[in-house]
Amino acid sequence: MISILIPTYNYNITRLVAELHRQALDTYVDFEIIVIEDGSTPFLEENKTVNNFEFCRHIILSENIGRSAVRNKLADEAKYEHLLFLDCDAEVCSEHFVEKYISFCKEKCVVIGGTAYEPNENNPQFSLRLAYGRQREARNATERDRNNFSTFNFLISKSIFDTVRFDENIHGYGHEDMVFGHQIHLLGYDYIQIENPIIHKGLDDNDTFLIKTREATLNLYKLYKTGRYPFLTEESKLLHSFVRICKLGLTRLFAYSFDQLQSVLEHKLCSSSPSLRLYDLYKLLFLCKTSIEK
């Protein structure tokens, strides 16, 4: 009936698996839970206990194969027609989480459950990640962007997945989900948006989040320059703005502005109340800087 698939890297997965296993048993449907350790070693011994749960498997990869490849491998390992992909740094916050997804397992579909954040989490070390998550990710089903596909928490029919699959040519951090989501739309499928979020627990501190932001922005630029993904300029607001700046001949000015403003912007973005408008500007200036250097 349903295969619950969790790629794992440097995270203790035992609590999440235990809750998913309990809920899946209560549905009285056929299920399996597969965890793939993508070349990580912290929490390895703890995560091996996943094998003690009935219908659960913990697979260890000796090397990290990347975000796209590990999800494709999970799908290859799955034996049921519906695949529920979850990120490892999640916490189930509803007693009916699995049950809600089971109700869609009678049809060919792509279902997105959503993301939530702890309402009482206000540690200033995570202020930027929390601001971004709460304002851009933790949206009701009716408010979510049609083009904003997230791998954090979604159900997909195996027959659809096998037609699309994650693009393993995409290396580095970020935007493999955007490409995957676009391919789903090309097949003629829309996402079914439902209220079935899980809590994002593995928060990056401000400095780490900015590092990942630069990595993801660099990856976006690399994808754009390959010419294989022409739709990115329409589906990425960041890339759309960048192309307009290039046409106006302002790229070098924006790149120079990044050099001059980087430390000031990062100081403000790491404050207790960061502005996402400044965050968007930071990414745009960095993208211009990247294009000049490359």
Score class of each variant (00 low, 15 high):
158 K>E: 05
202 G>R: 12
4 I>T: 01
292 I>A: 01
208 T>C: 09
218 L>K: 04
5 L>K: 01
98 V>F: 11
118 E>G: 13
160 I>N: 08
277 R>S: 02
267 H>Y: 06
261 L>E: 07
293 E>C: 03
260 Q>W: 04
139 R>T: 02
140 N>I: 10
47 N>C: 05
276 L>F: 03
100 K>I: 00
233 T>E: 15
68 S>F: 09
286 F>K: 03
15 R>Q: 14
112 I>E: 08
201 K>C: 03
54 E>R: 06
19 E>M: 04
72 N>E: 00
55 F>T: 01
76 D>C: 02
61 L>P: 05
170 I>W: 04
9 Y>T: 09
162 D>Y: 05
264 V>M: 13
92 V>E: 03
290 T>W: 05
22 R>Q: 12
44 L>Y: 07
6 I>E: 05
93 C>W: 02
35 V>N: 11
107 E>K: 13
223 L>D: 03
163 T>C: 03
116 A>E: 06
244 R>E: 06
64 N>C: 06
219 N>M: 11
277 R>H: 04
77 E>W: 00
260 Q>S: 07
160 I>D: 13
288 C>D: 06
113 G>H: 07
120 N>S: 11
182 H>K: 07
9 Y>N: 04
244 R>I: 06
289 K>V: 01
21 H>S: 08
54 E>Y: 00
92 V>S: 03
184 I>N: 10
41 T>V: 14
145 D>R: 03
72 N>T: 12
245 I>T: 11
16 L>S: 12
165 R>G: 02
175 H>M: 11
175 H>I: 03
132 Y>C: 11
36 I>W: 00
123 N>D: 15
293 E>H: 07
94 S>E: 07
232 L>F: 06
34 I>F: 04
101 Y>I: 02
214 R>G: 01
232 L>D: 07
9 Y>V: 14
174 G>L: 09
146 R>N: 08
98 V>Q: 05
83 L>A: 09
128 L>D: 09
141 A>S: 05
223 L>W: 07
32 E>G: 03
38 D>V: 13
280 D>C: 00
46 E>Q: 10
77 E>T: 04
244 R>W: 04
213 T>D: 00
249 G>D: 09
28 Y>Q: 10
248 L>S: 07
270 C>K: 15
239 L>V: 06
55 F>G: 00
184 I>H: 14
241 S>I: 00
94 S>W: 11
195 E>I: 03
184 I>K: 13
290 T>A: 03
138 A>H: 06
141 A>V: 06
47 N>E: 15
192 I>N: 05
205 D>C: 10
142 T>E: 08
238 L>Y: 11
127 S>E: 14
136 R>W: 08
123 N>L: 08
211 I>C: 01
223 L>F: 08
293 E>W: 08
68 S>W: 11
72 N>C: 08
181 G>K: 04
229 Y>W: 12
173 Y>L: 05
67 R>P: 02
9 Y>R: 08
235 E>H: 10
120 N>D: 10
294 K>N: 06
51 N>A: 14
214 R>C: 05
71 R>C: 02
90 A>F: 01
257 S>G: 14
21 H>D: 11
82 H>P: 02
16 L>P: 10
148 N>F: 05
37 E>C: 15
